[in-house]
């Protein structure tokens, strides 16, 4: 137990380092802040919708883009600057390094996503729903940060733009099939099938439940699916990174 606690502690040191170095990097700002903002403006301007109907999509999109913006870029940057070898030489397990990367992604996503979430306080959603929503946001941010670390696993490149391009190829289609712009219930049958494979679907459904009191899946299923996706992404990220670590260093 002491060993695990010590590794967790060291993963926070990795996260602290990531916060200092990577938050201000160009791709993080572009993909984590500017892009989702303009995408949201393109979606809302001229549609004449009330705020409460816009908020589930806005929260979903903001959380997804911000929580997945830091993670993909860390590994290639560390590979390029050879600092990854320095980390691997230290008494830190690969999973602790990845947890640190995930945690720094999580903090970035959470800090930005809290802004639209606070808007929900201006609506009449009730304190209990707000707390459940906050819990859902934390869980979803964890899930998306785990996905972001997984996205940087393959190919084991030292070029951040390659990973950013690949992660965009995954992220953008996901936004369009996950009920961000149209609720799941309004989607055609095939759309609903595809949507069920996206973790973002369950988070946007969860926010619709708690803000608009209409959801497609039961709330408990939304939470469970986000938790299951988190676990899958995390395990897959650790396994894949462990396989590619040698290639990055040599």
């Amino acid at each position: 137990m002491g060993y695990l606690a010590e590794q967790f502690k060291r993963s926070f040191a990795v996260a602290k380092k990531n916060v200092r170095i990577y938050y201000s990097k160009g791709p993080v700002i572009v993909f984590g802040l500017i892009f989702p903002l303009f995408l949201f403006l393109a979606y809302t301007i001229g549609r004449n919708m009330p705020l409460e109907e816009l908020l589930p999509g806005l929260i979903g999109m903001t959380t997804f883009f911000t929580a997945t913006s830091v993670g993909p870029s860390i590994m290639p940057w560390e590979t390029r600057s050879k600092t990854l070898e320095k980390l691997v030489c230290c008494p830190v397990t690969p999973w602790a390094i990845l947890l640190g990367d995930m945690f720094s992604s999580f903090l970035f996503g959470l800090a930005i996503s809290l802004i639209p979430l606070l808007f929900t306080l201006t609506l009449n959603i009730g304190l209990l729903n707000f707390i459940i929503l906050l819990f859902g946001l934390v869980l979803a941010t964890l899930c998306f940060s785990a996905l972001s670390v997984l996205l940087s696993a393959y190919p084991p490149t030292d070029n951040p733009s390659t990973v950013m391009m690949i992660s965009s190829l995954v992220k953008f289609p996901l936004v369009f099939v996950s009920g961000v712009f149209i609720s799941i219930g309004q989607m055609p049958f095939l759309g609903r099938i595809i949507a069920s494979f996206s973790p973002l679907t369950y988070f946007t459904d969860l926010t619709r439940h708690l803000i608009l009191t209409v959801g497609y899946y039961p709330l408990i299923l939304d939470f469970s699916m986000v938790a299951i996706f988190t676990l899958i992404f995390l395990v897959a990220a650790v396994k894949l990174h462990e396989k590619t670590l040698t290639k990055r260093i040599s």
Partner: peptide
């Protein structure tokens, strides 16, 4: 392979924490 975007002090503190 020190972290060039960190100061000398921050690099040492990071190593200390990792150990």
């Amino acid at each position: 392979n020190a972290y060039i975007d960190l100061s000398a002090w921050e690099n040492l503190m990071l190593m200390g924490e990792l150990y």
